[in-house]
Simulated assay, not measured.
Amino acid sequence: MAYNAYVAAGGHSAYATTPYARIRSLYIICGSGLNAPSQKAAEERAMKSCESARSHYKVITGAGCEVAASK
């Protein structure tokens, strides 16, 4: 859902996710920053959204969030 919103957004937007390894990961956590004033701001919003979701769901993965796509 977050990725589809990222693709549909017209302005500066970014999509962040936790790394996925089929052997170790049963799920991924993601977040997006849409229509921000700059690409950097969009990336910061996406990272904050992803980290917030990890905290909310108390998910412990091998690595933290990373920006997967940005425009």
Rank of each mutant, 00 (worst) to 15 (best):
residue 1 M to T: 13
residue 4 N to V: 12
residue 4 N to Y: 10
residue 5 A to L: 08
residue 6 Y to A: 01
residue 9 A to K: 01
residue 9 A to D: 03
residue 10 G to N: 01
residue 10 G to F: 01
residue 11 G to R: 04
residue 11 G to E: 04
residue 12 H to M: 03
residue 13 S to G: 02
residue 13 S to Q: 00
residue 16 A to T: 05
residue 17 T to S: 12
residue 18 T to K: 07
residue 19 P to L: 00
residue 20 Y to C: 02
residue 20 Y to A: 05
residue 22 R to G: 14
residue 23 I to W: 03
residue 25 S to K: 09
residue 26 L to M: 10
residue 26 L to F: 11
residue 26 L to P: 07
residue 30 C to T: 13
residue 31 G to V: 10
residue 31 G to T: 12
residue 31 G to N: 08
residue 32 S to R: 00
residue 34 L to E: 01
residue 35 N to C: 02
residue 35 N to T: 02
residue 37 P to H: 04
residue 41 A to H: 07
residue 42 A to G: 01
residue 42 A to D: 00
residue 44 E to R: 13
residue 45 R to N: 04
residue 45 R to T: 04
residue 45 R to G: 01
residue 46 A to F: 00
residue 48 K to S: 13
residue 50 C to I: 09
residue 50 C to K: 04
residue 50 C to N: 06
residue 50 C to R: 04
residue 50 C to F: 10
residue 51 E to A: 14
residue 51 E to D: 15
residue 51 E to T: 15
residue 51 E to S: 12
residue 52 S to Q: 14
residue 52 S to V: 15
residue 52 S to K: 13
residue 54 R to W: 07
residue 54 R to F: 06
residue 58 K to F: 12
residue 58 K to P: 05
residue 59 V to A: 15
residue 60 I to C: 09
residue 61 T to H: 13
residue 61 T to I: 14
residue 62 G to F: 10
residue 63 A to P: 06
residue 64 G to C: 08
residue 64 G to Q: 07
residue 65 C to I: 04
residue 66 E to R: 13
residue 66 E to D: 14
residue 66 E to Y: 15
residue 66 E to G: 06
residue 67 V to L: 04
residue 69 A to Q: 10
residue 69 A to W: 06
residue 70 S to Y: 03
residue 70 S to K: 05
residue 71 K to I: 06
residue 71 K to Q: 05
